[in-house]
């Protein structure tokens, strides 16, 4: 901490500024993704529950409604469809919603456990570290979504084969947006205990006031207020983007909405983790 550079070095020292080499950024990103993947595979419970949750909805909830509710022909569908076909994209979105919130939970956990400090004192710019963390979570959520689609195929959910490819960019975009929302939340949640509030006040309202479980036109018939709430809900647009992509269609309005929300959430997360303005400055001393 001298004011002038000192003329000594360790043997073979290479602690240089990472800004110079893009390869260093790539290594850092790969390292963060590897850690996320290792944590995911090491925590079997998390892995299983991420898969079982949407399958429960598909098998139990959708089967119950199968004979009660059919969905009339609305884009992107070209025929009448059974209810389970309708909710499948919403359940893929649910995987990403839970994953985004779970990674936010792990950020709060990391912060309480101290491992967030390890990330934050890396010499890479903070925006890059947060983006890398976000991408790592999205990569895991996409693998989970594809496993869900594979299982759902045996449940008579057969989108076109090309849809499985077309849905990838939609999953990337929606995963990023929901993950960024998780980052924002994690920057405002002070303690792990407060996370239960996120379940009650973020995940459930977002899920139930979206088009994941019921078509928006039906919602409009029931309540105009609810319909507008659903339209403003970022999760609605994530689900619609996935739904259209899975059936080889592009929903421009939802794509724009998801991109807009992503920009807003990411900007808020970067502010939240700024050392001068964000959570660290508000928390108080750690002595």
């Amino acid at each position: 901490m001298n004011d002038a550079p000192l003329g000594w070095q360790l043997a073979g020292q290479d602690a240089t500024t990472p800004g110079a080499a893009p390869a260093r950024y790539a290594r850092c990103l790969a390292g963060i993704i590897r850690r996320e993947a290792l944590r995911w595979t090491n925590q079997r419970g998390r892995f299983v529950s991420a898969l079982v949750r949407p399958l429960m909805w598909l098998v139990v909830f959708a089967a119950g409604f199968h004979f009660v509710l059919g969905v009339s022909i609305t884009p992107p569908y070209r025929t009448y469809i059974p209810y389970e076909v309708y909710i499948a994209p919403g359940l893929a979105g649910m995987i990403q919603l839970f994953n985004g919130m779970q990674s936010s939970l792990s950020m709060v956990y990391d912060r309480e456990m101290g491992s967030m400090r390890t990330l934050m004192v890396s010499p890479f710019p903070r925006w890059f570290l947060l983006t890398a963390k976000l991408l790592a979570g999205v990569a895991v959520s996409i693998v989970q979504a594809y496993i869900f689609f594979a299982v759902a195929w045996f449940w008579d959910i057969h989108p076109p084969w090309t849809g499985y490819l077309a849905v990838l960019p939609a999953l990337v975009l929606s995963g990023l947006m929901l993950g960024a929302l998780g980052l924002v939340l994690s920057s405002f949640i002070r303690q792990l205990e407060n996370f239960a509030g996120v379940m009650n006040f973020v995940i459930f309202p977002m899920f139930f006031t979206s088009g994941a479980l019921y078509p928006l036109w039906r919602m409009q018939q029931a309540s105009q207020t609810l319909y507008w709430l659903a339209q403003a809900n970022p999760f609605t647009h994530a689900v619609e983007l996935i739904r259209f992509a899975l059936y080889d269609r592009f929903n421009a309005v939802s794509a724009l909405a998801v991109c807009g929300y992503l920009a807003v959430f990411m900007a808020a997360a970067i502010v939240g983790y700024d050392p001068g303005r964000g959570f660290l400055a508000r928390r108080g001393g750690g002595e």
Binding site: P18, A21, A23, R27, C28, G31, I32, R34
Partner: peptide
């Protein structure tokens, strides 16, 4: 290794 990656070190 994770820490090394956070400093941009090669594998």
């Amino acid at each position: 290794h994770y820490h090394a990656a956070l400093h941009g070190m090669a594998r």
